[in-house]
Simulated assay, not measured.
Amino acid sequence: MSDNPVSSTVPDWSREAPRCWWDPSRRLLRSLRAHEELRGRDSPWARLMQRRWALSHRFWSVITQADIPLGTKIGGGLLLPHPNGVVIHPDAEIGPNCLIFQQVTIGTTGNRFGAPRIGGHVDIGAGARVLGPVTVGDHALIGANAVVVRDVPQGRIAAGIPAQLIGRG
């Protein structure tokens, strides 16, 4: 166990703070957060700023090649070290302090309705797919290229196609 455990409930907002001007993944998240903060406000200034952040979101989505819709329920502290190809369904829920690598899909399937619910401090390896109405528990690890179509309990490691539980995190 680490000396500095990452919380599955309290977002670490410093993980999302842009470190320089060219920090595409953090700028994409910043545009999502700013747009969401203005949602529901009815002043002309708020509507103008919401459009500004929507344009910023489009720009950084093109740069990162990530498909994370505005309004997606994402807990604070998300890390996207390599956001290329990340696709998140708008109905999916992602807990705080998660780590998602490149080419990950969190979405639905054609024959099972419902989107995934990802717990807090879940690490998802490159190329993994989390599909359908599954729940991934807090502190779980999803291996690279895994295809998760069943629930993953808290603190467990899932890998393979289809993903099997292979140990504890």
Rank of each mutant, 00 (worst) to 15 (best):
S61L: 01
A54D: 02
L131P: 09
H139N: 15
H139F: 14
S61Y: 02
H82V: 12
W45R: 14
A46M: 07
R112C: 10
P83Y: 10
A126E: 09
W22G: 00
E36S: 15
H35P: 02
P90N: 06
A163L: 04
R112S: 12
K73H: 11
I63L: 01
D151L: 08
I74E: 06
P11G: 03
G95A: 03
H35V: 00
R39G: 11
D151P: 05
S14P: 03
I106N: 03
A46S: 13
I161V: 15
H139G: 05
Q50V: 02
I157S: 08
S14D: 13
Q164H: 10
L55M: 13
L38D: 00
A159P: 03
R27N: 15
G120P: 05
A34Q: 14
W21E: 15
H139Q: 08
G125W: 00
C98G: 01
S56P: 01
V134R: 09
P116E: 08
P69V: 07
R30S: 13
M1F: 09
R112A: 14
G120Y: 10
P153C: 06
P5K: 09
I124P: 01
P18H: 05
P133D: 14
E36A: 15
G155V: 11
G143H: 04
V130F: 04
T72G: 06
G75W: 04
R58N: 12
I94L: 15
A46V: 11
H35F: 12
L70T: 02
R41F: 13
G76I: 03
V147N: 02
I124A: 02
F113K: 13
A140H: 08
E16M: 04
L32A: 04
L78T: 11
R15S: 10
R19L: 13
P11V: 02
W22I: 11
P153G: 07
V104F: 09
V152H: 07
R52A: 12
